[in-house]
Amino acid sequence: MDRAEAVSEVPERVKRHRLPTRLWHWVNAVTVIVMLMSGLMIFNAHPRLYWGEYGANADPAWLQVSATADRGFLTIGSATIETTGVLGLWEDEHGIVRRRAFPSWATIPSSYSLAAGRRWHLAFAWLLALGLIAFLITSLFNRHIQRDLLPRRHELRPASIWHEIKQHARLRFPAGEAAFRYNSLQKLSYFGVIGVLLPLVILTGLTMSPALNAAWPWMLDLFGGRQSARSIHFICAMLIAAFILVHLAMVVLAGPINEIRSMITGWYRIPPARKP
């Protein structure tokens, strides 16, 4: 009922995203995709992950992608699943059977080149890191983080989060006045990506550098060794990929034109409040 009363005061459109947010979003849309796909190319050079300081073929891997003569497999811990066609063994666009971890449609470049994958990855890493730093500084100054991204205490209550989950599951997205702000699930996922996953993926990436290990050996201790850092780097990358998929699905379900326009022009049309 509160909602119904508020309707009359709710403007039709609001300026939702400021310029720094919009710029960073689209730079990142390109950068993160390039980082993910070139990262998968680098992973293909040694599709095994370990915990600790060292790890090579003779050491136990907690995750590995492998292939036999005609089948591909993903092994995590003691569980192995067949992944023929997607991981380990697949056909490329010319119908040639390849035995590599990630298929050519998922990697940059599409054919195997560790040198080229690294060149893309380590160049775009600068955009990712500098972009994040610039965004964080700007958004602390203009209070975007404090005002819009940090969840309020009441939003973190289990009951409140459970309510949001149910609303999302029913595809009932915030309308009217509630659509002014990010809901708690949005805040948690945006803050999780911006405040946790991106910093973590950058720091674990730097921890894989033998030169920086000499300069800042504490990073090795922070992540429990170079191979642990590599594993955490991969896990963060997969979580970022999962975020992108959910994010795109939500954009489509919540009204793609309005959502995408708001990230280009800044203007967001407030969905009219539902009848109670």
Partner: peptide
Amino acid sequence: TRHDCVEGWSAI
């Protein structure tokens, strides 16, 4: 010391 291959593995 730790030897880090460009491919990703390490050996000490």
